[in-house]
Design a protein around this nucleic acid. Structure first.
Lengths: 145, 145
DNA sequence: TTAATTGCAAATGCTTTGCTATCGG
DNA sequence: CCGATAGCAAAGCATTTGCAATTAA
């Protein structure tokens, strides 16, 4: 078990919350894989070690971890959500060809919420910024004309 | 019929494309309403004038208009998509309380794709930027403690 | 012990698909 | 006339819900 999961377990050690092997497995998977998996992908992967795990349990735990603020749900224009363990703020580039996702940081955006606050009548509380493009692998392939 | 729709109609006047009253009604609704409606909302509204219109027709036409580049599908963390007529580039603020959407422009973001291009390995082709916050109406209501 | 959580099956809700009838050009 | 589009019903798919059985604390 890795140190991130260990820390989170102690955070979750409070009345009304229990640690199950399913929940633990999901937390470990999300902290070790850096692939922004879908619920389905998590389910298929964990199924290898926990043949009885159900799809519902994966969804339940993803919602639970999201409520606890430990993970982030990523909603792109795809049919299903992706999930990632929450670390420090960063953004995503999504390949429009193969769907691959890369992380990157862009400190310039920190001041943008203030600018937006001036432009809008809303009380701004957060933002979403995503980039779209072609990843290196897809870019190498010759385009058909 | 308004001038935006008129212009679009002449753009669409080419072999293989036909103008139906349903398509026309959807185009008119999207150019006159500024409420970022869902497919369901469009359907319910048009149903008043065209009692026979079907949900499928709304979806078909929204996909058609999207392919033609005339409208934009907005995918937020909600269960269904919203749609808007494409005008000049702008961004959205979404109220986390009531779901209301406002438009705003932020020219500072134009240069951000270039910055992102330097940070990432992708060939950047576009971006998405959204703000979240509380709108004026929702902000006025006293929070329950 | 006991209440949180699992896992199954069924339900839900948005969107798409298959197919025939209709209608636009 | 002919093929694009409408409209209906059914299917698809991700996600949620209801509920009895299990299990962590």
């Amino acid at each position: 078990m890795n140190v991130v999961v260990e820390e989170s377990i102690s955070l979750l050690r409070r009345p009304g919350i229990r640690m199950t092997q399913q929940r633990l497995a999901i937390m470990e998977y999300l902290t070790t894989s850096n692939s922004h998996p879908t619920a389905e992908e998590i389910y298929r992967e964990l199924n290898k070690k926990l043949p009885n795990i159900s799809n519902t349990t994966v969804y339940n735990n993803l919602n639970f971890l999201k409520e606890q603020g430990l993970i982030q749900e990523l909603i792109f224009g795809q049919s299903c959500s992706r999930y990632e363990w929450r670390t420090r703020p960063h953004y995503h580039v999504i390949c429009t060809e193969c769907g691959k996702i890369d992380d990157f940081e862009l400190p310039e955006l920190n001041r943008l919420e203030e600018a937006a606050q001036r432009e809008s009548n809303f009380q701004i509380s957060g933002h979403l910024f995503e980039l779209y493009g072609i990843c290196t692998e897809c870019g190498q392939e010759p385009l058909q004309s």
